[in-house]
Amino acid sequence: MERWVYPVTSLRPEDVEQKRVCTTRTPLRGEYAWDAGVAVGRFLTELKAGRLIGRRCRACGRVMIPPRMFCEQCFRPTDEWVPLADTGTVITFSVCTISWDMRRLEVPEVPAVIAIDGASPGMGIMHKLGEVGRTLEEILDRVRIGMRVQAVWKPAGEREGAITDIRYFRPLED
């Protein structure tokens, strides 16, 4: 099969830096304003008030977070809003030591999927954990899958109806 492989002209970073090859470089700027929608719009309004809510489908019985106005399983409208707790269980987590453009972070971030109390089992949202240490070793020592956590909210006056109205989730003292 070697006959059917084209070798390609591989460029090294210095080929570009020393202008041995011609390149053009232009930024693309696009700005978007996303409407939150019916379900998530209400969810954001509740976040501003310091509360988490979900949506129940009476056909399958699931209480869903993030909430949706339709059940993608039963393919029918969901039926009612359900108040949820601001506590939950860590389903999984990571300790991220780099930014999206591969720069090292001074303090690692701890993204997690957190199953929210009051929603159906396994219904989680993505957020971050905090108050769990400042180095990879400290964080791995403190955080466990299955760990109980609680939301740490911004003060009421600083909330704006965004997922970041929850600063992070911290370990719950049992």
Binding site: G37, V40, F43, I98, P111, I125, M126
Partner: peptide, 16 residues
């Protein structure tokens, strides 16, 4: 609306 404001990168989802 619910994820990008947290500043995610692609590795998060695989690591999780």
């Amino acid at each position: 609306t619910l994820e990008r404001p947290l500043g995610p990168n692609l590795l998060w989802i695989f690591a999780l």
